[in-house]
């Protein structure tokens, strides 16, 4: 086994970067594969080996790896969320926190007028969503340059995005369609409460999952 030269490392990185690999985990696994393969061949065969590896890890193969990893991690996140929702597994402390939250919400529904409840609910939703975005900020890229990101962070962020869109439809559409009159309707307020409770439980389960997921960064 030999040590790779700086030039070889640069060649591998250049190739992998040109593939626009979406996830850090895929990037690292392919990078290790390239390095280990090259370490086991003489330096003279380096160029031909890299060419062969480039064929093996063609763009379509890498895209498929990205896609499959995303599917697998998405499944893992969902399983972890379901596991988190089994409140009886969190012990007395978990059950008490859940009950306090539930009663706080129930009291606010009873005391605050229906027309103002939407604000309370939106604040709650934005707080939990903001928390998730903050925890998984490594997945966000505001530059025009491609950046590989952590697959688990993307899986969590995508779910929050989906939840936000869904909540917007649930809140805004009936208000727009009724010209705001629906805000004084008690049934709508109860509907809002149920949707908010579900949304918050979903978001909290995502926060719990997100906090347990490892943060991947490229070396």
């Amino acid at each position: 086994m030999r040590q790779l030269s700086e030039q070889e490392f640069a060649l591998i990185h250049a190739r992998l970067k040109s593939l626009n690999i979406r996830y850090i985990e895929v990037y690292e696994e392919i990078f290790d594969h390239y390095c280990t393969t090259l370490e086991n061949v003489p330096a003279l065969d380096s160029q031909t080996t890299i060419a062969k590896l480039n064929e093996t890890f063609a763009c379509s193969v890498v895209k498929n790896m990205d896609k499959e990893l995303e599917k697998s991690v998405s499944k893992q996140v969902w399983i972890a969320q379901l596991e988190f929702l089994k409140f009886w597994k969190h012990g007395v402390k978990g059950i008490l926190i859940g009950l306090v939250g539930f009663f706080a919400l129930a009291i606010s529904i009873l005391l605050i007028p229906a027309s103002e409840l939407i604000l309370v609910f939106l604040v709650l939703i934005f707080c939990t969503t903001g928390g998730i975005y903050f925890m998984k900020r490594d997945a966000m890229n505001f530059s025009f340059q491609h950046k590989s990101v952590s697959v688990s962070s993307i899986a969590v962020i995508k779910r929050v995005g989906l939840l936000n869109s869904l909540m917007c439809w649930i809140w805004i559409m009936p208000i727009v369609l009724s010209g705001g009159n629906i805000l004084s309707n008690n049934f709508f307020a109860i509907g809002m409460a149920v949707a908010t409770i579900l949304s918050i439980i979903y978001s909290i389960s995502l926060i719990a999952v997100a906090s347990r997921l490892p943060k991947s960064t490229l070396l």
């Binding site: 498929n64 499959e68 990893l69 697998s72 893992q76 070396l219």
Partner: peptide
């Protein structure tokens, strides 16, 4: 690699990251 990731998602495999030289 997709097969490994699938088996991991199904809970049949666990993973461990180790630092080897300048890579993981």
């Amino acid at each position: 690699y997709p097969a490994l990731h699938k088996l991991e998602a199904e809970g049949l495999l666990s993973t461990e990251i180790q630092q080897v030289d300048n890579r993981v």
